[in-house]
Design a protein around this nucleic acid. Structure first.
Lengths: 243, 243
DNA sequence: TAGTGGTCTAGACCACAAA
DNA sequence: TTGTGGTCTAGACCACTAG
């Protein structure tokens, strides 16, 4: 019934999610795990893994002894903070036409805070890129990226800077971002920031201060982002973890 | 070796985490899953589930073909946004002496926004509680909770309002909060807010606008919280989800 | 009491990394 | 080549919910 690659679990997840979106389960109830396993021709374990992922995404809820049910509220939410990987995709999920402007880029010695975050010596040459994301032409996210120059091959063009940062890092540095460690910081839109995001000065904004790590747990990028809250409201599902 | 309840997986998780904290694995490398399974007397599946949870908490990193390694950076972080369940516990995790002040509480008809969020008729009697959390005596979180009065038995005292909200809801309403759906909103500290949190007026702050749902996916509480960023910096681990 | 999800096992095979 | 984590199976038993 299903082939390998991507994993059976992932395929089962997508299959079930599609059935949900197609209103296959009219009463909001999802078939029993054993039934799904038979229907998709995989083991119950695989189905359970798939349902666990969907539960984590807020798509379904499970109740022991009762069944598994569609989570209508969770199904609607976009821009989950913990699922953002590229701003391009995030804006597209919202139905916006996303575009990117490179406002500035330069290689210069790393200032102290950047050097500390990236665990490099102060003054190590670092690529600094200032990007503005637009949604349907309206400015919505302003991003500063700092990447140690020695990680990059250097043969990129100005146009390449418009690539999603994880693509850029892979193409020109053979680096993969495994995860980000992010701090959420409130800021005031002053001068430059207010100008680029086209908001009134002293508007309160959310910013991310984050460091991206590669598969070897080495910091490879420092990133600071500011969001226009009215166009891009950040959301999150919080659960109790005790089990 | 291990008993049931809590689950073997959870016990294995805690056991491994404790070994990590005890510096049992001096080189930052965690034994192979099969070895851990033998050592703890459980199946490899159980060990894998335990390690998956630790990976989710940022405690370890896994590399296919290479091994499982301690994530020193992730091990340090506190106040992970997606793991907050009670502010009392969160403050305690930070090493603060936590205390709670009930600033105000009243039962009155639900205003429009509360009624909509809780899916009840406008004017439904609703308990409104205004709480201030202090860390080592310093004000740090201001919370407004709204709970429909008909969910509560009503025989609580003023002192009971100081209980963590999930305890209060269980004791006096037999309701369990399954999850919250939260929005992260930037705000300015004006008047009342600035006063209670003891910050300068117009300081930018992070606020949560959230709704708590019970096991039947019914909204049972609307909650708004504001944080003093200097005392309580919110953090998050973001991963790529493709698998 | 019947049916559901929750936990756990033992074992198989695969993909990948390091020596 | 060896050893690691990644995926998947088939089956067992438990805990819980609902009729």
């Amino acid at each position: 019934m299903l082939k390998r690659t991507p994993s059976l679990t992932e395929q089962a997840k997508l299959h079930i999610k599609q059935m949900i979106l197609d209103d296959t389960f009219v009463d909001g109830r999802i078939p029993a795990e054993t039934d799904l396993a038979i229907e998709l021709g995989v083991s119950r374990t695989t189905i359970r893994d798939a349902l666990s992922r969907l539960e984590g995404e807020g798509v379904v809820m499970r109740k022991q002894g009762a069944g598994t049910f569609i989570n209508e509220v969770g199904l609607q939410i976009k821009s989950r903070l913990d699922e953002i990987w590229s701003y391009e995709a995030m804006l597209a999920d919202h139905g916006y036409e996303a575009s990117v402007h490179i406002l500035d880029h330069v290689i210069r010695p790393a200032p102290k805070d950047v050097a500390e975050a990236l665990d490099i010596a102060t003054d190590t040459p670092t690529l600094e890129v200032k990007k503005l994301f637009l949604a349907d032409g309206k400015p919505v996210i302003l991003v500063y990226n700092h990447i140690p120059a020695h990680l990059l091959s250097g043969d990129y063009t100005d146009g390449d800077l418009q690539l999603p940062v994880y693509t850029f890092l892979w193409e020109f540095g053979r680096q993969q971002i495994n995860h980000y460690l992010s701090e959420i910081v409130p800021v005031l839109a002053t001068g430059d920031l207010a100008h680029h995001l086209a908001v009134q000065p002293n508007t309160p904004l959310i910013s991310f201060h984050e460091v991206g790590y590669n598969d070897d747990n080495q910091p490879i990028i420092k990133s600071t982002s500011c969001f226009r809250d009215d166009l891009m409201r950040l959301r999150l599902i919080r659960r109790q973890i005790i089990k």
